[in-house]
């Protein structure tokens, strides 16, 4: 009788461990599938775009290219960052500009 009871309790322990394992597995599966479902959401969204939407994306791409690869690189360097190596030099320069404004003409 005792042996049967012990075997029974062992079986229940193992069974509950299995349930916990299955539950953990489900949670893990769900967690892992979140990035996939987000990816699918965006992929399907982009795939099923309307004509105007595609035109607009093309415009965005052209605009960002002009802004970051043409304007920023060739026309809009950061004046103080490119001219001076550290903040001390930058602040010295600005103080000089603010207190000797005649130099701005030179």
């Amino acid at each position: 009788m005792i042996i049967i009871k012990r075997l029974g309790s062992l079986f229940i322990d193992q069974y509950s461990n299995l349930i916990v394992l299955v539950r953990m597995n489900n949670i893990l599966y769900k967690l892992l599938s979140v990035p996939k479902s987000i990816w699918n959401f965006y992929a399907q969204g982009f795939k099923n775009q309307s004509k105007w939407s595609r035109q607009v994306w093309l415009l965005i791409a052209i605009k960002l290219f002009i802004m970051f690869f043409v304007l920023k690189l060739f026309f809009f360097p950061n004046f103080l960052k490119t001219k001076y190596d550290n903040d001390q030099e930058r602040s010295d320069y600005v103080i000089d500009q603010l207190t000797n404004p005649k130099k701005s003409l030179e």
Binding site: V56, W57, F76, N78, K81, V94, Q97
Partner: peptide
């Protein structure tokens, strides 16, 4: 709304470019 948002998005970044290039005394100050 989407057309307007998409065309207008990031146009404000150019103002930040200008701060760094044309208005460096101001940006530092």
């Amino acid at each position: 709304f989407g057309i307007n948002f998409a065309i207008g998005v990031a146009t404000g970044i150019i103002l930040e470019f200008e701060f760094g290039t044309n208005w460096s005394n101001y940006s530092w100050f």
